[in-house]
Design a binder for these strands. Structure first.
Lengths: 209, 209
DNA sequence: CCTACCGATCGGTAGG
DNA sequence: CCTACCGATCGGTAGG
């Protein structure tokens, strides 16, 4: 029950710490993730927690990586097999808004919460967050450009502006639900995305994930 | 230089504390507003800071009130004289996005930052934030309904969905600028607002505030 | 408005 | 992975 355990056990412990850290951060931000709190929640000592990461900042970066991977699994993986261009783009919009409406972390989307929390601060967390969201932006912009090239979207659309708008609408689902009880916010966001893309409104049962 | 001063002096000190608190919160969130930090920044003692408010929570609520009033002055006051309905609604969109692109607090829009920080937490700050943003939502919904009733906007638009979308786009300007250097994010947001409202794109020099 | 202080918690380390 | 500990900072109070 006590003392050192195997490397596999250590990896399991590490994963449990990151899951808990992501849950806490989704509610109270990455600032709310304190070593002592994680230790108490997981019934470990503080040194047992921080030993996996070295410093709190490394723990925060690891939690961000973990959340980014979960985002990829929940939003990108269900649609990456779709045809590149408009079809996959609309699939992303559907899985993205569904992801925000039924979040896996208790406080909602980790990436959205952290982006608005950390955008004005300097440091490695800011930079890692910019890198993660930038990668996602380039994926989206790529789909949009493919759809334009294929003639499925209007040629005068601005891909960067569209990426910004899709991102803002998806992120807005979080506070709309938790501050105002807007249970339909994901539907509104998805419709607005379609309007901005200039395509017909989504059908009701488009997503079932 | 020391000891008690007049009631007018006390009010000035109080205002200086709130300004500083709003600046700090716009960068690091309301959690970053600590009594000791404000005291150091303003060259006061901690008891001198907290004496104006009683508790940290009361200080946070006062900072929120202060920021809400500044938002009203910067976004609503410049356009409240316009004709109710579409004209005033479009004026709000312009002053709102301009406000986000040239924020008065160092870290950007206090209301946006705090909404995404505090939406998942319980307590009086959450409730006050919901009340403040709800008031703003009702103002916006009122303008939209007036514009629809006047025939200036399509009758099949959903006012609640539009309010959600306008809010999300305005709030998104903050992280777009600070995380990705999108200096045009305010222009993109304003264009998207017009598209969702179903009105022509804004003219370039619509706002000069 | 100040000094001086309280118990609690912070991130982190030493040593095992 | 633990206990035991470090200096710093937290919100807040007593007393003036």
């Amino acid at each position: 029950m006590t003392g050192r355990r195997s490397a596999a056990d250590a990896l399991e412990t590490r994963a449990a710490i990151l899951r808990r850290a992501a849950d806490v951060a989704s509610v109270e931000g990455l600032d709310g993730v304190t070593i002592g709190r994680l230790a108490a929640d997981l019934q470990m000592s503080k040194s047992g927690v921080i030993g996996h990461f070295g410093t709190k900042e490394q723990l925060q970066l690891a939690a961000l990586d973990y959340a980014a991977e979960r985002f990829r699994v929940r939003v990108w993986e269900p649609v990456h097999h779709l045809r590149p261009g408009l079809e996959r783009l609309l699939g992303v919009c559907a899985s993205w808004t569904a992801h925000a409406a039924a979040p896996e972390f208790v406080g909602g989307c980790f990436i959205a919460a952290t982006s608005y929390e950390w955008d004005g601060r300097p440091g490695s967390v800011h930079d890692a967050l910019a890198a993660v969201t930038d990668r996602w932006r380039r994926t989206l912009a790529g789909e949009i450009k493919r759809a334009i090239a294929a003639g499925d979207l209007a040629a005068d659309l601005n891909p960067d502006a569209l990426v910004f708008s899709l991102e803002s609408l998806a992120a807005g689902i979080n506070p709309a639900r938790q501050l105002h009880g807007d249970t339909e916010a994901d539907t509104w966001a998805l419709r607005a995305m379609h309007t901005l893309l200039g395509v017909p409104a989504p059908t009701v049962a488009a997503t079932a994930s």
